[in-house]
C-alpha cells in the first residue's frame, strides 16, 4: 500500500513547484540577462540619437529664425562674434539644414523634413552675440532665451511648452503659447511693444521698478496682480481687465491670459 509521502513525492504539482524555486544561480543569470538587455537598448538609443554642431560668422545685426516641430530651444548670448548651433536629434531620420542668408541664420525643421514622417524631438541650443534678434517657433517644447539685447525677441509655442525670457532688453518682444507658463525678466525699452499671451498658464513679468509703460492686461479668471505697479489711474472692468499707464507710458505692454495668473514683479 503506497504511503502518503510517496504520493506527494511523485506528484507532478510538487515537481513543478520545485522546478520554479528561485535558486541563487538562477537569479544571477536573470540579472545578467537584464543588464545585457539594458545595455543593448541603451546603446541602440544612443546610436539613434544624432548630434550636430556648427559655427557661423556673425555680422553686426544677427537674426536667428528657427522653426522647430518638437523639442526644446535654448538661445543664449556669448562673447564671440559668431553663432554656434548645436542640435540633438532623437531620430536618425531627422534632418537639419541651417541656411545663412546675409546676416540671418535660418533653420526650418518643417521644410527640411517634409515627407520624412515623424522625426521626433529635436533639441536646439544656440549661442549668439548679445545684440542678436531671435524669432523662435515650435509646435511643442520649451523655449528659453537668455541675456539678449537685440531689437526683437519672438517665442511662439503652438501648443504646450514653457517660455522663459531672462535678462532681455529688446524693443519688441512677443511670447505666446497655449498651455504653459511664460516668464519675462528684462526691461521695457522706450517706445517698445511687448505682448504676452497664454490660454492656460501663468504669466510672470519681472521688470525694474522705474519701468514706464502703458498696460492692457486681460484675464477672465480675474487673476491679475500688478503689485508695485498698480496705481489709481488704472481702469478696470470688474477685475478681468486692467488698462492704464505706469509712469509716462513710454512703451506698450499687452498681457492676455485666459485661465492663468498674471503677475508683475519688481526687480
Amino acid at each position: 500500500m503506497p504511503q502518503v509521502s510517496d504520493c506527494i513525492l511523485r506528484s507532478p504539482t510538487l515537481m513543478k513547484t520545485r522546478s520554479l524555486t528561485w535558486l541563487p544561480s538562477n537569479r544571477a543569470a536573470l540579472a545578467s540577462v537584464a543588464v545585457l538587455l539594458s545595455v543593448v537598448c541603451l546603446s541602440s538609443l544612443v546610436q539613434a540619437q544624432q548630434k550636430m554642431s556648427k559655427r557661423y560668422p556673425a555680422g553686426k545685426n544677427v537674426r536667428i529664425e528657427l522653426k522647430n516641430i518638437s523639442g526644446t530651444i535654448v538661445v543664449e548670448s556669448w562673447n564671440k562674434d559668431e553663432i554656434r548651433l548645436s542640435a540633438t536629434m532623437e531620430s536618425s531620420n531627422a534632418h537639419v539644414v541651417p541656411r545663412q542668408i546675409d546676416e540671418s541664420l535660418v533653420v526650418d525643421v518643417m521644410s527640411d523634413n517634409r515627407g520624412r514622417g515623424d522625426v521626433g524631438d529635436i533639441n536646439f541650443r544656440l549661442q549668439v552675440p548679445a545684440n542678436s534678434s531671435v524669432d523662435l517657433e515650435t509646435r511643442r517644447g520649451q523655449i528659453s532665451v537668455l541675456n539678449l539685447r537685440g531689437s526683437s525677441v519672438r517665442a511662439h509655442v503652438s501648443t504646450e511648452g514653457d517660455i522663459e525670457l531672462t535678462n532681455i532688453t529688446a524693443s519688441q518682444v512677443v511670447a505666446q503659447n497655449t498651455i504653459g507658463n511664460i516668464f519675462f525678466d528684462g526691461e521695457f525699452s522706450t517706445g517698445g511693444t511687448y505682448e504676452f499671451k497664454s490660454t492656460k498658464g501663468d504669466i510672470t513679468i519681472r521688470i525694474p521698478g522705474n519701468s514706464a509703460f502703458r498696460l492692457v492686461a486681460a484675464s477672465p479668471a480675474k487673476r491679475i496682480a500688478l503689485g508695485d505697479f498698480w496705481n489709481n489711474g488704472f481702469k478696470t472692468q470688474d477685475g478681468r481687465k486692467y488698462v492704464g499707464d505706469v509712469g509716462d507710458g513710454r512703451s506698450s505692454v499687452s498681457v492676455t491670459n485666459f485661465s492663468g495668473q498674471i503677475t508683475f514683479l519688481r526687480k
Binding site: 518638437s70 515623424d118 521626433g120 509646435r139 511643442r140 503652438s158 501648443t159 504646450e160 497655449t178 490660454t199
Partner: peptide, 17 residues
C-alpha cells in the same frame, strides 16, 4: 502621420482652446 505624443498634445491643446 503624427506620432501618438503629438496627437495627444494637439487634442489636449485643442480642448483647452
Amino acid at each position: 502621420r503624427w506620432s501618438p505624443e503629438m496627437r495627444a498634445t494637439f487634442e489636449r491643446n485643442l480642448q483647452v482652446i
